[in-house]
């Protein structure tokens, strides 16, 4: 049966293109040359006798000259700005001292291995916390969309949680966790500042991320849910198969931005005494009175985040392009 359908298909499809091409081919021989195969394809532009008009050539020449001018202006402006900034910094009264204490290559070389060893901790924290944050954030967002009287306390709790941790400064949350929890002397609860610091990150960031997820869920048009419900899907099924997949896709770029922000904030865990990149730099700076290690640690973080932000940009751009290409929904 499928064989038959398959056989019938191509025949019909093959017929169609012949129609429109037929007249074209018939016209071609009237032209002077009769190219075949690949040549015919390559010289299609010449075949229909098109030659760019004077007007088009003039327009293109003008556009090229404008583009050259723009490039020149951009280069000049960039160079001027860089020189101005350089002169401003170098001519400032304290530059010599600053250069010695912040830009000392010897100390940088000495600190690099320590900072990188500390960075490992930051990366582990980011990955570990990142996964937990995504899970909790999504959970919180979904809990807040639950309908029905049974879920009222759940909704209230989730809302209160998000409100609380959105407003609470990160550093206070960290201090409370790292110093407050051990002070409770609870048995079976860790006093490891690293774990407690990580927990503080998860607590705060879950609130941020849940808001991102929630905005994604709300951005899915109600008609999608109506379509799902009218197919007989329950509320939960409509959420799982129709709303969430679209919502999550839309919030990937802002989530990456949150990840970048999280990566920086892992440096705050050092206030509890865990030796991360920032703390490693602090140790060296403390016995040398040179701040170059701090700058180095900062640079290392920047180098890590740039690819992530560029990736988020690229992803956003790609999604925008796809949307501009159309698509009814």
């Amino acid at each position: 049966m499928t064989g038959e359908a398959g056989a019938a298909g191509p025949v019909e499809v093959a017929k169609e293109p012949v129609g429109p091409e037929g007249p074209k081919r018939a016209k071609d021989p009237t032209g002077a040359t009769e190219p075949t195969g690949v040549e015919a394809f390559a010289t299609r532009a010449e075949q229909d006798g098109y030659r760019p008009s004077e007007r088009r050539l003039a327009h293109e020449a003008y556009r090229r000259s404008r583009a050259r001018r723009s490039a020149l202006i951009a280069t000049a402006s960039t160079v001027l700005t860089a020189v101005a900034l350089y002169l401003l910094v170098v001519n400032s009264p304290g530059w010599e001292v600053t250069r010695r204490t912040f830009f000392n290559l010897d100390y940088a070389r000495q600190a690099l291995p320590e900072v990188l060893r500390g960075l490992r901790l930051n990366l582990e924290l980011m990955l570990g916390c990142g996964v937990l944050i995504l899970v909790f954030g999504l959970l919180l967002a979904v809990l807040r969309t639950l309908r029905g009287p049974v879920f009222l306390p759940v909704r209230l709790l989730a809302t209160a949680y998000v409100d609380f941790f959105l407003g609470l400064p990160m550093i206070i949350c960290l201090l409370v966790m790292i110093t407050g929890v051990p002070a409770l002397r609870l048995t079976g609860v860790t006093t490891d500042p690293l774990l407690l610091g990580g927990a503080a990150l998860v607590l705060t960031y879950s609130a941020y991320v849940s808001e991102v997820f929630r905005s994604g869920i709300e951005s899915v048009h109600p008609s999608q849910r109506a379509a799902a419900r009218s197919l007989g899907l329950t509320n939960a099924q409509a959420m799982r198969y129709v709303v969430l997949p679209q919502a999550v896709r839309r919030v990937v770029p802002p989530l990456i931005n949150n990840l970048v922000s999280l990566q920086k904030d892992t440096g705050l865990v050092s206030i509890g005494g865990a030796i991360d990149a920032v703390y490693a730099a602090k140790i060296i700076a403390a016995h040398s009175f040179n701040f170059t290690p701090y700058l180095l640690a900062g640079l290392v973080f920047i180098v890590l985040t740039i690819p992530l932000t560029r990736f988020a940009d690229w992803l956003t751009g790609r999604m925008n392009r796809r949307q501009l290409q159309g698509g009814a929904v």
Partner: peptide
């Protein structure tokens, strides 16, 4: 009851086949 809407309301993240088989499979 089957419903068809003016604005189609197909699920954009699913292929045609997935759109059609969603309700038979899940419901």
């Amino acid at each position: 009851i089957g419903v068809v809407f003016q604005s189609y309301n197909l699920f954009p993240h699913m292929t045609v086949l997935e759109n059609i088989t969603l309700a038979p499979r899940r419901v």
